[in-house]
Design a binder for these strands. Structure first.
Lengths: 236, 236
DNA sequence: CGCCAAACGGGACTCCTGTTCCATTAGCGC
DNA sequence: GCGCTAATGGAACAGGAGTCCCGTTTGGCG
């Protein structure tokens, strides 16, 4: 993409260019709140931002490009993540955080838009991945600490637990379109926690690695999907 | 919607009309596989189906309409759902089924498209909801039977368990764009199972109901979102 | 302070999507 | 078979998104 190079290493980042970018991104967010992603028109954004249509096309190329840049902007802002000393409280806070993001009028519209854009534009998809990669890594630390404290089984895949907290929320938001509220968020956190405690997030021993800890944990193995009830797994 | 009435109660459903519909939907799927939803052009579909552009516009109105009709068609085809007598095997089969749907070249493209369409068109969103409502209800029966057998705690929300199986898969597919394979599917099923066994899907006692069974579970209750910042997360 | 390249802005132009009009075809009931 | 009408098909038309061209502005730099 030619736009990217301009976005990243701008050769004249001083005054005007920065001002234009700021104005355009702000206008984009306003438009997203009012009309949603499918109603995002480059002309409108340009007009609202008070810049030329040509400029918007030149620098962002498409609605998806606008939205991707917006997401990149958001990704750069670090968010506070809880570390309360209790896995339950941390995961609840995580769920609440996701809830806040998708519920907030402005942020929610942006997320919806990015996800919509990501379904058809690789650029937006990459921005989304980058954002979540960062957030998941941040929150994973609190899960790791819970493992260190012995609250969760040894070998638990922290990032997986974090993802498991938000997965049901996004599932509702995107697939079933059910409302997402505090109740759902809290339950989601607790479900992830329960599964984690039961050892469902313990990484399968990679080939011939240390299978020593396994005896200690609740012994969850991933085997062939096919047949019925091997019975053994998952029991503590 | 005016199209809907035509799709639903067609006044002359015989021969030609049905043929046209079939041809158009087939062409739509082909186009989706080749170009994806954002590349779905009404003209192309019409040409490929060997029908007039006008007809396609008249009966489906938009790419989203095409995709929604396709989804409705798929929803009407009942899928076999396992009932092996073991919750684990059933949930694994469920996960495998979802995996199959999103992995299959043709079906997968269709699902991606419907989801993309659902992000901007209520019609497609409704078709998607209807589809999943049906599928979830079908699979929920096997979970209910597991509850009856005593494999899972009394009061477990069967539909929730089923949703929990597919949620991580869709999360990967849509949000993080990670690959989804048998391994992920199997883990997803086991995680849901673990949480269900731990009682994380037991419905919160509605007012003054039986909270007796709760002692048996690992004491996971839905409480107030206790500690930490639930306010301004995701912010800078 | 003044040069110069980078960035911006406006307007005309193109192409493609979606609509409208009307002639034609083909189910369906008799 | 036969007519009636729903449904289809083709072609012309309109509107809007995206591109191009070129003149204007702006900020970095000597």
């Amino acid at each position: 993409m030619e736009q990217e190079s301009r976005l990243a290493g701008m050769q004249r980042p001083g005054g005007r260019t920065a001002r234009v970018r700021e104005a355009v991104l702000a206008a984009t967010q306003d438009e997203l709140v009012e009309r949603g992603f499918h109603g995002l028109a480059m002309d409108q954004v340009a007009a609202r931002a008070g810049v030329g249509k040509t400029t918007v096309y030149r620098r962002w190329g498409s609605p998806a490009g606008l939205v991707a840049d917006l997401m990149t902007e958001l990704a750069e802002q670090s968010s506070p993540h809880a570390d309360t000393g209790s896995a339950e409280a941390d995961l609840r806070a995580n769920a609440a955080s996701v809830l806040g993001a998708v519920t907030d009028r402005r942020l929610g519209a942006t997320f919806q838009a990015v996800i919509a854009a990501a379904t058809c534009e690789e650029e937006a998809a990459a921005a989304l991945r980058a954002f979540y990669g960062r957030r998941v890594a941040e929150w994973a630390r609190s899960v790791e600490r819970a493992v260190e404290r012995g609250e969760l089984p040894e070998g638990t895949d922290a990032a997986e637990v974090v993802r498991a907290v938000s997965a049901p929320l996004y599932y509702r938001l995107l697939v079933t379109k059910e409302p997402v509220d505090e109740d759902v968020a809290a339950r989601s956190a607790l479900q992830a926690l329960a599964a984690a405690r039961a050892g469902a997030f313990v990484r399968p021993a990679p080939a011939v690695a240390s299978s020593a800890e396994r005896g200690r944990s609740t012994s969850v193995r991933v085997q062939n999907v096919t047949t019925a009830d091997q019975g053994s797994e998952m029991r503590g």
